[in-house]
Design a protein around this nucleic acid. Structure first.
Lengths: 199, 199, 199, 199
DNA sequence: ACCTAACCGAGACGGTACGTCGCGTCTTATA
DNA sequence: TATAAGACGCGACGTACCGTCTCGGTTAGGT
């Protein structure tokens, strides 16, 4: 009965896709995620609701794609490696703090993190597309430091990266503290202190 | 015209309050937070909608109270202090891992964490009632260790606690990894390694 | 799961009911039956859609009630009986012709007749409430004439009534001719000519 | 900009036209007129929607053509004239009753009659193509009887035909009674009784 | 021991948004 | 250029809940 067939993506309207992304990001900033509606996005984008439902299963999915499309341009090649691990980490984390403190960034990111908590499927995508790639950069940088002997060979670098990043994201997500440069510096120092090879 | 006066809590029906908590917790487990509705709670609890609206401003607030009422019984006095910091932390964190792996606990806790991400007011209450008290126990235990010299005097114990707890909660909330005993043990070891007083 | 229970009609809002009738009749006249929508009625009546769906199953049912409520005031006691059957019939049919030529009457009546053609359930109600009572008046008047000997005893008065009324309604419904006084008079004469007792 | 030009009917696909008729008639029988959709017809006929929109302005027009194409084969030359008017009329009306009682005939015919009630344009075509030709046969037969003296010269044969046919169609359309042979016979007798020349 | 104000269960109400269906227009590729 | 296919903007569908609002019926204290 029902038409369950997948739509033909080669005939998709690029103009509509873009308009939907713009509308979704603008609206989530203006009214917040809870009051973000598919109808609102469609209307702001000058698009039929069906055009959204045809390509995305939920407002979270729309927002995820919209956000990803924006962020993907950032596309870093890797963390800086000046030879000074602490300095490199502080530099990057300070930049990330600035980014997380940017209001335009906050609304969609928070919304996606929150939606992911209640939707396993979504959280997989969210992590794979947005958080994992960033984390991997830290893991790689730490592994490089391991090879130069700056970090102990017996260290679990994945967990080390989490010790660095999770306090950061957690503070931000739960609003348990400000993301200041001071905080970032102390965090880096305190984590690195434990990573040095044992005498 | 409208009656804006606060209700008289001395005449409140305890029976209804309990029924609402039970219904809310049961439903959030069965249908998830997004499909949890005030009408659903009222109907399941055999209660008028107004009785809910009279006492709580939102479904998140109901759930927060319901969850708190359940968890408050746990009420620990403090972390164990056997003199062996690593052992004490591993013991408590392993127990917490078990708790977080309990399905009955997951749905409401995830829901509240997520709701908090988008609702500043709620997140303040959530943190103050549910996460801060727990965190403080760790801070206190670390401070005690600082006094025995097990932990360096120059350590920021708040951040140290976050290095311990955030990777833990982050993994769970974002589903980026399992909360195994192995993970807990490695995490504790790796964090503590950096806390020791400098030679 | 679903709430299939019937609503409590004792708590029904009379104000809304009236507003819905007014809106339905006004709109069917303005935009026609096909473009008459539940949303349009609700909006014009200043009423939630659910308030309509709670009490009626379809726009046809709303219109039928609305129309009935208007027409019920007509409530005739019976056809005139001056002793002159032809004169009585012409008098009433001329009045009916005037009524059917009234634009305010046309739109809803046509719409209901048409909707009934495709919906057996609806047509039963339509006939029982709107057409049968009128027909019965003619049947009764003819039977009275039968008793005075003006109409033959062997005549099927039901069919005689149909010979009078069906050409009339058919012309109007299908627009196959005007409902003029001339037509009415000729029709009455020609029908009565066959009803007289056989010499 | 828009192409408003009329399509070139010489290049029209006869195969598609037939498939559309078949689909329309089949569907109106299966799901009824209200749930009959252009999309449904196109899909069932294996035809693009545009092919329908190119040649017909509405689903009613499609159905009218489809029905006409089916019925046109019947094409009678005239009513029988055995010299016995009553017998001739009963014979034809009984056959018509059988036809109207055929389920395959009912759905489209009812649908068209109903659609016509709300759409003046359509009803003109409906009457001209489907009902008027039939009526005229009766008018002609009655006029012939007038010439043989079987029917009074002062009779309005058009109205006489309506006295015969309208009760018949009305009963069927509004479902106010069965179309039995008994009914047909009584109707014919009672109508003819009034048509005889006055002594 | 009654009054009466408040809470209570129930659910109708005006709304907003949902996710779906079908409209009529359009674009694309095929024959 | 007609066609099969189907994406598009749009409008309405019928449903689910929202938060507010009566409506009786309990259920306490305060007199």
């Amino acid at each position: 009965m029902a038409n369950t067939s997948t739509p033909d993506s080669s005939r998709r309207s690029e103009r509509s896709r873009r308009a939907i992304f713009d509308a979704a990001l603008a609206l989530v900033g203006e009214v917040g995620y809870d009051k973000l509606t598919i109808e609102g996005i469609a209307s702001r984008a000058g698009v039929g609701k069906q055009t959204i439902y045809r390509w995305w299963p939920s407002k979270a999915a729309v927002l995820l794609d919209a956000f990803t499309a924006t962020v993907d341009d950032y596309d870093t090649k890797g963390l800086p490696d000046t030879g000074d691990l602490a300095a490199d980490l502080k530099f990057v984390l300070r930049a990330t703090a600035d980014e997380f403190n940017d209001p335009a960034f906050q609304a969609p990111y928070r919304a996606l993190a929150a939606a992911g908590a209640n939707d396993e499927e979504l959280s997989r995508t969210f992590v794979a597309r947005l958080s994992e790639p960033g984390t991997r950069l830290y893991v790689d940088r730490l592994r490089a430091a391991q090879e130069t002997g700056e970090v102990g060979a017996d260290i679990d670098v994945r967990i080390a990266a989490e010790m660095l990043l999770s306090p950061f994201s957690q503070r931000w997500l739960m609003r348990t503290g400000e993301l200041t440069y001071d905080f970032v510096d102390t965090l880096v120092d305190q984590v690195l202190r434990g990573l040095r090879p044992r005498g």
